[in-house]
Simulated assay, not measured.
Amino acid sequence: MAAEAPHIDLNAQPGHAIRRLHQIAVGIFLQETAAHGITPVQYAALQAVHNEPGLDQRSLAGRIAQDTSTTAGVVERLQARGWLRREPDPADRRVRRLTLTEAGRALLAQVVPDMQRAQARILAPLDAAEQVQFMALLQRLVQHNNAHSRAPAEPRRRGGAAARVRQSRP
Score class of each variant (00 low, 15 high):
Trp83His: 06
Asp67Trp: 00
His50Gly: 09
Leu138Tyr: 13
Glu52Ser: 00
Arg94Asn: 10
Ala72Phe: 01
Ala72Arg: 03
Gly82Tyr: 02
Met115Val: 15
Gln119Arg: 15
Val111Ala: 12
His144Arg: 14
Leu84Cys: 08
Ala120Gly: 12
Thr71Gly: 03
Leu107Gly: 09
Leu100Phe: 07
Thr99Val: 10
Ala118Lys: 01
Arg121Phe: 05
Ala72Gln: 07
Gln143Gly: 09
Thr70Gln: 01
Arg93Val: 12
Gln66Arg: 11
Asn146Trp: 00
Gln47Trp: 08
Arg81Pro: 10
Val142Thr: 08
Pro113Phe: 01
Val112Trp: 02
His144Gly: 06
Leu108Ala: 12
Trp83Lys: 02
Phe134Ala: 14
Asp114Trp: 01
Leu108Glu: 11
Gln139Glu: 14
Ala72Trp: 01
Arg121Ile: 10
Arg58Val: 06
Leu84Gly: 01
Thr99His: 08
Ala128Cys: 09
Ile122Trp: 00
Gln79Asn: 10
Ala129Arg: 12
Leu141Val: 13
Gln133Phe: 07
Arg85Ala: 14
Gly54Met: 08
Thr99Asp: 13
Ala118Asp: 03
Leu60Thr: 00
Arg94Gln: 13
Arg93Trp: 04
Ile64Glu: 00
Ser149Thr: 03
Arg85Cys: 11
Asp67Ala: 00
Leu137Pro: 11
Gly82Ser: 05
Leu84Asp: 07
Val75Thr: 04
Leu126Pro: 11
Val142Ile: 14
Pro90Ala: 09
Glu52Gly: 01
Gly54Thr: 03
Arg81Gln: 13
Val95Phe: 09
Gln119Ser: 13
Ala91Ser: 13
Val132Asp: 11
Gln131Val: 05
Leu78Met: 06
Arg81Trp: 03
Ala106His: 14
Arg105His: 10
Ala109Met: 12
Val142Glu: 08
Gln79Phe: 02
Val132Gly: 05
Ala106Ser: 11
Pro88Asp: 03
Ala120Glu: 15
Arg117Val: 05
Val95Pro: 05
Ser149His: 09
Leu100Ile: 09
Gln57His: 08
Val111Lys: 02
Gln119Phe: 03
Thr68Pro: 04
Gly62Gln: 00
Leu126Arg: 09
Ala128Pro: 09
Asp67Val: 00
Leu138Ser: 15
Ile64Arg: 00
Leu141Thr: 06
Leu60Asp: 03
Met135Ala: 08
Arg96Glu: 10
Ala106Lys: 13
Ala61Lys: 01
Ala128Val: 13
Gln133Gly: 08
Leu138Asn: 14
Leu138Ile: 06
Pro90Val: 01
Ala103Glu: 15
Arg96Leu: 12
Arg81Tyr: 05
Pro125Gln: 08
Asn51Arg: 06
